[in-house]
Design a protein around this nucleic acid. Sequence first.
DNA 1: ACCTGAACACCGTTCAAGT
DNA 2: ACCTGAACACCGTTCAAGT
Lengths: 229, 229
Amino acid sequence: MTQEAVKPVRPVRPARPVRSPAVSRRAVLDAATRLVEEQGVAGLSMRKLAAELGVAVTSIYWHVGNREALLDELVQEMVHGLETLAAAGSGPVARVLSLATGLRRVLRGHPHLIGLVNERGLTPAMFLPSQRALAAEVAAAGLGGTRAAEAVRAVQYHVIGFVLVERHTDRSPEQHPTAEELWLAEPAADTVLAGAFATPVDSDRLFTVSTEALVRSLLEGPFPAFELT
Amino acid sequence: MTQEAVKPVRPVRPARPVRSPAVSRRAVLDAATRLVEEQGVAGLSMRKLAAELGVAVTSIYWHVGNREALLDELVQEMVHGLETLAAAGSGPVARVLSLATGLRRVLRGHPHLIGLVNERGLTPAMFLPSQRALAAEVAAAGLGGTRAAEAVRAVQYHVIGFVLVERHTDRSPEQHPTAEELWLAEPAADTVLAGAFATPVDSDRLFTVSTEALVRSLLEGPFPAFELT
DNA sequence: ACCTGAACACCGTTCAAGT
DNA sequence: ACCTGAACACCGTTCAAGT
């Protein structure tokens, strides 16, 4: 109590924060990110978030506004954290394929991103870098103008669509009846073909095969549809 | 009151239905179908349904069990009502393309069906008819076994994926910034290319071009990836 | 600056009770 | 057989009030 003899040192703690905040905006964002990754966008609830952080629901609102604003922020962080793709390999086909593969990998890493970005009107902005990279390779292959733009968009639709189908497959329950069961139940069916369809889909291989077929045809083949214009 | 003189005729109304039911199972299903078409699956609420039919919420439960069972029934009706596809045209490429176009048209007519069917594990069953039709054409083109199955799956993934991307586009708000704005803002960009990308996507044409490129390559082209196995 | 509970308008679902 | 209201456990959000 009688400490006047000792010159008081500058207090270690600054004067302002009398008590430290129970949660931070950062903590809310991190918890929300985890919830979305584990349970999907629908699994993100303000009340779950509050319970997980040991705080009243209304505190969450003070830090991030509301659920929509919270999702906006998550989307912004995700998009900002996306790696920029660079083509690799030699020859236009190989280089376009490397971009397609990279785009698929990035999108698979953030399964909810496509929908969230699209709802917020950010789709063109998000895909601009990959679109530019693809356009450069397509131009190097000798395509120009409308035809180049169409080839780029065809690859983009193909890759994004493939990832969306994969996402459906990933989060689907056991399908019943199985394609295998259906094909083996066919009485008059080609048994070789039935056997081939009974094999589960190897999606990596299917992506490679289909994308290569598409890209080769777009860059090298004749295009009757193009000539119509 | 004194009617004993007159032999009572058989009453017109049967004795059982003292009062007619307020709603029928059929009416619930129809109202639910309309709600889903107008507001999406998330817009289907048991309470909205009840309000629309002028009945207590719990009546809905008596007729259809619960929300999940109601959706099950809707899915079953939708799948049952799907037209079966038939190939048209001459030559394998044209016939496969006609199947792809038909599949896209059917799927676009029921935008929520893919997700609902998949959640219920009915995806293989739903796509079996189109898969069989595609397989027949691919076999006619000379492919067999694994290679035929892979070609069929490539087309299926492409078409379904394309429709999923289109669905995103359809239900997206105004995108901002636009692809047009982004490309025109590029200082060092190829102005011809920028102009091409500034044009809005013609999705019918894009579907035709990309699908034809894919199918041609799958049925006619050389496939390095196939040789690896 | 940061947190709280109360309150409101929505959900899906169950239950006991009516006719 | 068919419908009802009450009740429960969930939502997102706003507000006035605390410190």
